[in-house]
Simulated scan of single mutants.
Amino acid sequence: MTEPATRTPLSPTPRSALNRSKERGATDRAELDAVLDAGLLCHLGVLLGGSPVVIPTTYGREGDTLYLHGSTGAGNLRAAMTGDVSIAVTHLDGVVYARSAMHFSMNYRSAVIHARPVELTDPEERMHGLRVIVEHVAPGAWDAVRSPNKKEMAATMVLALDLTEASVKMRTGGPRDEESDIAAGVAWAGVLPLRQVWDAPIDSADLAAGIEVPEYVRARGAESVSAGF
């Protein structure tokens, strides 16, 4: 993905500034890109009827814009249009075992975004937003499948969110035990890594004979093989 030459840097606001473990925060916007690009699912937080609701949904990023989509009849998306929302993407990389219960932790990469969604109404912009989402989740698929028709587009809402106000936080490494617990040597300490991999594609039960798994699908599995998974 080609990024614009000039981009707004990550600058903390009262909502996005880290209050605890500030040393785990990242200030480079490329770190935000990396967390979002590595994920497939985000959690959208909205106020629905005066109560907080968190919705898991797919997304797509292009430059400093995040795209979401859903049914025009979805109450959560309608609620998202009434004010600011919060979006979170998290990758769990491992469980950190310590010698003391209070020092158990997790290695992770996370991003939290605050923004006011904008509903796209221009037909070309809406189609482009959907393309970004599909290509993020299934690279190479958009040009190989049927494009949305007028009926499908009429039933679909596409939202764009600016990525200016966001925070990135991550943890790596082993446990941060007390010296006295290290010296006592009473328990194992270390990291149990966690990874997510692609498995072999499974044909649809109604797939016509002779249609092979396309290269753009096989390529996803090859990512896991090349990484040694």
Rank of each mutant, 00 (worst) to 15 (best):
R78I: 04
K22D: 02
T57Y: 08
G129N: 04
W198G: 01
Y108A: 10
T164I: 02
A184V: 04
G50C: 15
P9W: 01
V168D: 12
S224W: 10
S11T: 13
S110Q: 03
E178W: 07
E165C: 01
L41N: 14
G210W: 13
V53W: 15
T72D: 08
A98I: 10
T156L: 03
V213Q: 02
S100C: 00
V158S: 04
V85A: 04
A183H: 07
A154K: 10
I202V: 15
S71C: 14
V54G: 09
W198S: 11
R171K: 14
G83W: 08
K151N: 03
P12M: 13
L32S: 06
T121S: 07
A154F: 01
M153K: 06
V217M: 07
A183R: 13
K150D: 14
A200I: 09
V118R: 15
V118S: 12
A101C: 00
M106A: 15
H114N: 08
E119Q: 11
P193M: 02
V96Q: 15
S100V: 01
C42F: 08
M127P: 00
A38T: 05
V186T: 10
Y108P: 11
H91C: 03
A184D: 06
L36Q: 04
I182H: 01
K150L: 07
A88I: 12
M102P: 00
P4M: 03
R61F: 05
G50V: 15
R109P: 04
E178Y: 11
T8D: 00
L18N: 03
D64A: 11
E215V: 00
S167A: 13
A26W: 02
V197N: 08
P193I: 03
A160R: 14
N76G: 02
V95D: 07
E62V: 05
T72W: 00
T58R: 08
P148K: 04
S105M: 12
I87Q: 03
W198T: 05
L36E: 07
L120V: 03
A154D: 11
A5Q: 13
S16E: 10
Q196D: 01
T6P: 00
